[in-house]
Amino acid sequence: MTRSHTIVALVEDRKGVLNRVVSLFRRRGFNIESLTVGRTDVPQISRMTIVIHGTDPIVEQLVKQLYKLIEVLKVSEVNVEESVVRELALIKVNATASTRSEIMQIVDIYRANIVDVTRDSVVIEVTGPQAKVDSLVSLLRGFGIKEVARTGHVAMIRGSMATARASTYFQESDWKNAAATQTTSDSY
C-alpha cells in the first residue's frame, strides 16, 4: 500500500549534501513530494524534512540507503498524527478596492496575514498543515492568483522526546570553536 511518508534527516552541513540526498532519491526511483532544508541549533548540522509516496518496505529501504550517505547522521520517519506538521505559503492575489475586504475576511478566518498591499494585489502569508494551505489557495482562486510560493513540510514530533536532536552530535564547545573559523554559511 503506498502512502505518504514524512522523513526527517539530520545531515552534516557540507557542500553537496543536498545533491547527494536528491541524487539518491532519483537513483533509487523515489519521487519527492516535498523537501525542505534548514539549519538546526547546531551550525554544522542541517535538518531535512522529506515527504515521499511509497510502500512501507520501499520507504524502509530508502531510510537504509540514506544512512549509507556519509554525511547523514540520523534518519527518522515521523508519524504525522503524533507530530506538528507545518508549511508556509506566500500567495499573491488580485485585490481591487471592491474585493480587498472580502479577501481580508478570508485571511482572518484562516489566521493568515497580509504582508504586502498594492492598489491591485495583496500578498498573503499563511502557515499550517498542507490541507489548510490547499483550502486557502482554492478559496482565493476566484480572485485570481498571480503567484504561489510554498515551502513544503517541516515536521516535529509532539511531546518532550526529541527524535532528531542535533546537539547529540556536537558539543557546544565544538561548534562554537568551529563557528568562529567558519567563513561561509551558504554551503548548499
Partner: peptide, 16 residues
C-alpha cells in the same frame, strides 16, 4: 568528476 561519480562511489570529495 565528483558529480559524475556520485552514484558509483562509496563517498567522494572535492577538496577546496
Amino acid at each position: 568528476i565528483t558529480g559524475i561519480t556520485l552514484p558509483i562511489t562509496k563517498h567522494n570529495y572535492l577538496v577546496e
